[in-house]
């Protein structure tokens, strides 16, 4: 009896211990987010000013004189929007083709494998590839080249996010439309896209958030300039690179502004991330469950 009881107690002790350790692990991981935000906010806030987000760098900005990083904010907005738009043009057809034509077939799995592999390719490789391509074509660093590099980075993210949602669409809905005599293309355009609008928007915003924060792919392709680009062929600044370059400065004021730029970037990314969540849950009301 007593042996039985001891055994009984020990396994419950183990259960309790494991559960506690797991909870601690979860708190550590979640706590990392808190630590990061706390560091960025407390160090970025002091040098964040209105002129930073409304002015382009003036003479001597990189020696601590006045100006702002509007060039980088606008540049990043252009880059990320352009890259996202370009990626939508490709990823929506792929996601629809996967659902309406390929379904869960073997081919569909190959395409998904290819997308997952593309997702895993680091953005520095896309950047180097883009730059090698630019040299072959005789192009210079420009907004267009940056947009193309970012589209490559965001394409797999967007497509897989869309695919994950589109896959979960009730099959009955598709069958109902097909039974009424619609072609697969009509199913894809008129049924799947509408039904999956929340998922598609989530995917787009996810990709936009990734695109706006990606530094390695635009490092060689988009260049850097103090001016706001006026054409696709101009080089352009971007927020992540503004953070990166300012941190490398020997002037403490400039480094401080680098922290502030990091805060601006973080705020934008968090708004996009939270916004997509909110929008998706709103739009979800209008889909067939």
């Amino acid at each position: 009896m007593s042996i039985k009881k001891k055994h009984f107690e020990r396994r419950h002790l183990v259960e309790f211990l494991m559960k506690t350790i797991m909870r601690i692990a979860l708190v550590i991981v979640a706590g990392a987010l808190g630590l990061i935000l706390w560091t960025i906010i407390t160090r970025g806030l002091p040098s964040l000013s209105w002129s930073m987000v409304t002015q382009i760098p003036k003479g001597g900005y990189y020696m601590g004189k006045e100006g702002g990083i509007l060039n980088a904010i606008i540049g990043s907005a252009y880059l990320a929007s352009g890259g996202t738009l370009l990626a939508i043009l490709l990823s929506l057809p792929i996601a629809l083709y996967l659902k309406a034509y390929l379904g869960d077939s073997k081919w569909g799995d190959y395409v998904r494998l290819a997308l997952d592999v593309l997702w895993g390719i680091p953005s520095i490789v896309y950047g180097a590839f883009g730059f090698a391509l630019m040299i072959m074509l005789g192009m210079r660093a420009s907004l267009l080249a940056g947009i193309i590099a970012l589209a490559l980075v965001t394409l797999p993210i967007m497509t897989r996010a869309m695919d994950e949602v589109i896959r979960r669409m009730p099959v009955d809905l598709e069958h109902a439309a097909l039974a009424l005599g619609s072609t697969k293309f009509e199913v894809a355009i008129q049924v799947v896209t509408r039904q999956m609008l929340p998922g598609i928007i989530t995917g787009i915003l996810l990709a936009f958030g990734r695109g706006i924060g990606d530094a390695a792919s635009v490092l060689f392709t988009a260049g850097y300039t103090d001016r706001i680009p006026t054409s696709l062929m101009n080089p352009t600044a971007s927020l992540p690179l503004a953070v990166f370059f300012q941190l490398g400065s020997p002037y403490p004021e400039v480094r401080e502004r680098g922290y502030a730029a990091a805060l601006i970037l973080t705020i934008i990314v968090l708004i996009v991330s939270l916004g997509s969540r909110l929008l998706a849950s709103r739009l979800n009301k209008y889909t067939v469950k």
Partner: peptide
């Protein structure tokens, strides 16, 4: 959110 934070911000942190 942790996944959404850009690499350069991780670098600053």
């Amino acid at each position: 959110l942790l996944a959404a934070i850009p690499p350069v911000v991780y670098g600053v942190w």
